[in-house]
Write a protein that binds this DNA or RNA. Structure first.
Lengths: 329, 329
DNA sequence: ATGAAAGCGCTAACAT
DNA sequence: ATGTTAGCGCTTTCAT
């Protein structure tokens, strides 16, 4: 790979001038042109490693997510990417598998690669952002919040849980269960609270807890807990799934037993990825995944550029898309 | 961030010794211990940027894929990740959107960040790997091949097309159409050829081309061309979809018109992501996505470590999972 | 086994 | 506007 020294020599200028040309500082038009020619001839590309070492920060943003196979997060990634690209940053995706240890490793790597900043969907409420923040790198959390004083982009989870549950109640269901993710993930908890608000208001159950299941935010989790719920002495007549993958799991079980769309109503918080179901079969609360990515990236880039206002939490809105449920007679 | 100089001072040794401790070269046990203590006290982490600049290669592998939202590629990514992590590399995911320009940009970035190597699912047959190869960086292509002399991990596409089509024929379908991806992507072309082999053998159509549709490898593409096919004077009674997303698109249209599973048979090359369909409704040719990632990563890492044997192409096997189709009377 | 020192390629003072 | 130069933090000869 050619260096600025070789380009400088070929163009008959100093290395500093070459550097200036590639960094937008003032250079006489003639020199700039000669440098560009020389660079082209040598097919010179600035060495980003050297630049990063010198500048103490790179032009890459780390996006740390718990599950790269979850379309919710990849959609978010697209949003981040589009904004970042626009601003001249590249995005690297880091998959933590919801494991705090893997997550911590990626934090270390991001730091020691001097990445410009980080967008994190924390693996758990105890994710340790301290080291990153301590080093002064900008961090924005998405989807979930933490106890750290950083910008966060989230959505209205409890209202989402309420909306989903309400829609099923309006459709005539009267024993609405809820399946959600790990209790220590705030989205899982809050959405379930939203469900609880509604079932409590309608005095649906003597003990709502009986019809609430914590699980993993995955298809397998959904399959397991729905199977559980159906084995209850008085099984639910509808189910609120607190994320897309739980929804898929639930629908798999119900479809197999031919309980949906008719006999058991389903509402999902999150879009159903690659669904082949008729849209009317299921109530969906659309989450602004892409927009969360976009918003987080914008904030992060502002921070990278030096914005120092106090940390904000931005709450995005969801959109209810009711199914046309028909309660079995 | 602490540097080796500070660690060296605290441990009472030279920076070189500190470096040696962190690189596994011989250091006296006592010194090694003192360095480790000092490093821990300062919570020192080696600066990867500096290391990369000096060594001329980093410890990260770029995985360049056309569509990060396609579960086929994310599954592959998991395979790559697992192997890479094991070997001490981190993986960064680069999404090209099937755009050669974006792809070229990521190649440049990978080079100028001195990444250790690259695994690429080429956006098109004309992807320009020349610059990367020219710089001596190891490259492995996955899923698709190119004209460049590099290692490739692919699967048996034409046989997959044949198997899918055969399964539908065995089930009794007699007007089997095929929807596939862009003609210049070899997987799209080869799978269609496999379909052609079978329909030609059975003299199914006067002109098979009429029942073959090239499109994009996306859900929208599937919706569009299946809608097309159904408008034919003599519409097909079954459809082979050449990838997972086309399959989803096809199933969306057919479900909406209540043509599947009974009236129109469907076979998909690639797993159906997050499906809620009963497994018996569709014939599926399972692709070894994860295994391709694993294999590619292993080869790449060997290359990074200095393996110089001639480039190989490894062809992985697929697995037919026939549906229980029932042809409408 | 250890240390001294050069240098990876770049940027940013500073000097002109 | 341009050149000179120090140095970002590390690894790696080359001495000892």
């Amino acid at each position: 790979m050619a260096t600025i020294y070789e380009v400088a020599e070929l163009a008959g200028v100093s290395p500093a001038t070459v550097s200036r040309v590639f960094n937008g500082t003032r250079v006489s038009p003639e020199n700039a042109e000669r440098v560009r020619q020389a660079a082209a001839k040598l097919s010179f590309t600035p060495n980003r490693t050297a630049r990063t070492l010198r500048r103490q920060h790179s032009e890459v943003i780390a996006l740390v997510i718990p599950d790269i196979e979850n379309p919710y997060f990849t959609e978010m990634a697209r949003g981040v990417e589009d904004v970042a690209q626009e601003a001249g940053f590249s995005v690297v995706l880091c998959n933590t598998d919801s494991q705090p240890a893997k997550e911590a490793t990626y934090f270390q790597i991001a730091l020691s690669e001097s990445m410009a900043g980080m967008i994190v969907a924390p693996a758990s409420s105890r994710s340790d952002l301290a080291s990153v923040i301590g080093r002064g790198r900008p961090v924005v959390t998405v989807d979930r919040t933490t106890d750290f004083d950083v910008d966060a982009v989230v959505m209205s989870n409890r209202p989402a849980g309420r909306a989903a549950t309400d829609a099923l109640y309006q459709a005539g269901y009267r024993r609405i269960a809820c399946i959600t993710g790990p209790e220590d993930i705030d989205t899982a908890y809050e959405r379930a609270q939203g469900w609880k608000d509604v079932v409590t208001r309608h005095e649906m159950f003597a003990d709502p807890a009986e019809y609430l299941r914590y699980s993993t935010f995955g298809v397998d989790g959904g399959v397991k807990v729905v199977t559980d719920l159906l084995a209850l002495p008085e099984p639910p007549d509808a189910i609120v799934a607190a994320n897309n993958l739980l929804g898929v799991g639930a629908l798999q079980v119900l479809t197999e037993r031919e309980l949906t769309p008719l006999r058991v109503g389903v509402a999902v918080i999150g879009g159903l990825p690659f669904t082949t179901l008729p849209p009317s079969a299921v109530t969906v609360v659309r989450l602004p995944a892409r927009n969360m990515g976009v918003t987080a990236a914008r904030i992060l880039i502002e921070r990278i550029k030096g914005d120092t206002q106090p940390a904000r939490t931005i709450v995005l809105r969801n959109q209810l898309v009711p199914g046309r449920h028909r309660v079995a007679p």
